[in-house]
């Protein structure tokens, strides 16, 4: 479904990724594990088109998406829950979710997606008019995931979803990831928490 072929990425003069290749088969959970600064976030951002690789290719569903604009990649069904959640803290929860469906023009479809997200994360429903910045870390992670789900991705990239969460919450987040996968979303997961990540992964890189 996703194929990354020997990408090299630079930040100015810094050679951040020196040749990474990976493959994510349809329907699977693949985990990417690496030390701090290994370039995991950079890899995900390159896949999403936020950074362009100097050399190498990215293919999504057999189409070359290297250098394609992020909004186009999102439209094709690939999105990312970024490291550190990056929710829109000064907006209420429901607006965060609406923005997740930015490319969906069908109001009814958006309303249904939102209902589905609220069903999966009931805590978001209780607080839907609250500013996102006032949520706890775990709730923010749920919001970030819910927001990404609003675009109905076929492939979801998750960058360290367990960061800064208590063990119980980590367990909850991972069971949600597993559930999402069982319902048909392919997942590429970046984790420091190797033990947990490996326990749900079909494949590790």
């Amino acid at each position: 479904m996703l194929k990354v072929d020997d990408i090299h990425v630079y930040y100015g003069a810094i050679h951040a990724i020196k040749g990474i290749s990976l493959e994510v088969p349809q329907g699977k959970i693949v985990t990417l594990i690496g030390a701090n600064g290994a370039g995991k976030t950079t890899t995900l951002n390159t896949i999403c088109g936020l950074i362009k690789p100097k050399t190498g290719k990215v293919y999504f569903e057999d189409k070359d998406i290297t250098g394609v604009a992020t909004q186009e990649i999102v439209k094709r069904g690939l999105t990312q829950v970024p490291e550190g959640r990056r929710i829109f803290a000064n907006m209420p929860i429901y607006e965060n979710l609406e923005l997740g469906a930015y490319l969906k023009k069908d109001k009814k479809e958006v309303a249904e997606s939102m209902e589905r997200v609220y069903k999966r994360f009931p805590r978001l429903l209780e607080r839907k008019n609250q500013l996102a910045g006032s949520l706890s870390g775990g709730e923010q992670q749920m919001l970030a995931m819910g927001r990404a789900l609003m675009s109905k991705p076929r492939l979801l990239l998750l960058d360290e979803p367990s960061m800064g969460l208590s063990p119980i919450l980590v367990k909850e987040i991972f069971s949600i990831i597993k559930e999402l996968n069982e319902q048909g979303t392919t997942i590429l997961l970046v984790e420091q928490n190797a033990k947990m990540a490996l326990s749900i992964a079909h494949k590790a890189m």
Binding site: C48, G49, A69, V74, R86, M91, L103
Partner: peptide, 23 residues
């Protein structure tokens, strides 16, 4: 409006806004 929400999202966090599909 959606364009207004997009404006607020971009002013808050450009990369996150891009991941929403905002141009």
């Amino acid at each position: 409006t959606m364009i207004g929400k997009a404006m607020r999202a971009v002013s808050h966090d450009k990369q996150a806004a891009q991941l929403m599909g905002i141009n």
